[in-house]
Simulated assay, not measured.
Amino acid sequence: MSLVDASVLTPCPAAALLASPIPADGHTMAADSLLRYLQIKVHHLIQRESWNRIHVVGGYDRQAVISGHEKTGKLFNVERPTAEIHGRELVIKAFPGNDYVHHYALIIATYLAMTNKPADIVRYELPDPVVCRAAVELLDLDMDGDLVIVGWGLAHLAPAADAWIYGPGYAWQQARLHGRRVIYLGFLHSIWGDVAGRVVTRLAELGARDVVYVGKVGALQPGVEPNTRLATGNTSLLGGTTVTWHDFFGDFATAQPGVHTGLHVTSPSILLENQGWLTEHAEHAFVDPEIGPMGAAAHHAGIGFGYLHVISNNLARHYPADLSNERGRDVVHRRSILVEQIRNIIGNRMAALSV
């Protein structure tokens, strides 16, 4: 048995909620880009076959049917939710987290609606908090006041390509940077939304003093071209409440050329970021699902947190690069330059702290 409670193996328990598709014509992504984004996320069994019911649950189960659309050529965040067949009903198992389960159910329902298939067959069940905590508690590292760098681009940030030590769903390596031990930590699965907050809580329990999250955000200001600038800050709007944390970078990152700062907004799903949502948050700077929960968890645990992200897309203006074509050659090249800048900023910040 995986981390899924046995009760979810009945394909549609009474606790299941309907996943309503998002209208494509009101979304901040153009319809063709939105459909491409969905196609690279939806499990191949859903794209190839018709089902009477689809039920999305929280459970990390690599023994179930692995998606044919999992990423290749990457070390981390390569795994998609898996599937378990029950006759003409399908159970989709996403890594346990409220935001991720809901997000993936919206992905499936919206994909079905956009491809003219019945979308009212999709239900989701929010995972038990005990299951969510147990999934993250599989992370087990020996730390003592270390800096942990977690997230995206780690293959280019960590010093050794062949030094990764693997655990259940993650890999890590350590190095010394300006006299301090640094842990590079990557996850094979997504740590979407509230999962990322629990990761920070777990790292604090294990002895981390600071956590730096490297990833990607969407810009909410129309003049910011994707893949040309970095984002940082120490404040996020999370569930209608402003949260602030002790910023690992202080004012150091914001003083660097090409680094943009401002108030971040936490959104539990890209599918919810329609034009009405954009109008409501037009005065803010960035959006992603993880920064707010991570910053709030760090603040609660009394440790430092900082993010330094590539601005990967723009919700306020359509640019050629968006979330549907991230593997394009020009995008990859531009991001490689930004990752090198991230490496330099982290190194220089560590050097300044060691003085």
Rank of each mutant, 00 (worst) to 15 (best):
M1R: 14
A16F: 02
L18T: 14
A19S: 15
S20A: 12
A24H: 06
D25A: 13
D25K: 11
H27T: 11
L35N: 14
R36D: 12
L38Q: 01
I40E: 06
L45T: 10
W51A: 11
N52L: 08
R53L: 10
R53W: 04
V56C: 06
V65M: 05
I66N: 06
G68S: 12
P81D: 10
Y100A: 13
A109E: 01
L112E: 10
A113Y: 09
M114R: 13
N116P: 00
P118D: 09
D128I: 06
D128L: 05
D128H: 10
V130N: 12
C132L: 06
R133E: 15
V136P: 07
E137I: 00
L141N: 04
D142P: 04
M143R: 14
G145A: 08
V148N: 04
W152S: 11
G153D: 10
A155M: 09
A155L: 11
L157Y: 10
A158G: 09
A161C: 10
A163G: 13
W164L: 14
I165S: 15
P168V: 03
G179D: 08
R180E: 09
R181G: 03
G186N: 10
W192Q: 03
V200K: 08
T201A: 14
R202I: 09
G207V: 02
A208L: 05
A208I: 03
V214N: 06
A219K: 08
L220W: 10
L220R: 03
Q221L: 01
Q221G: 03
Q221S: 13
N234V: 01
S236G: 08
S236C: 15
L238F: 00
G239S: 09
V243P: 07
T244R: 12
H246A: 15
D247P: 07
F249A: 05
A253R: 03
T266M: 11
T266E: 07
P268W: 00
L271E: 01
H281C: 05
H284F: 13
A285M: 13
F286H: 01
P289Q: 10
A296N: 11
A298S: 09
G304K: 03
F305Y: 14
I311C: 04
N313T: 13
N314R: 08
L315E: 08
L315K: 14
R317V: 05
H318Q: 15
D322T: 09
L323Q: 06
G328S: 15
D330F: 04
V331K: 08
V331I: 15
V332H: 09
R335S: 03
I337E: 13
I337H: 12
Q341D: 07
I345K: 00
I346K: 07
M350T: 05
A351R: 15
A352P: 01
V355N: 07
V355A: 09
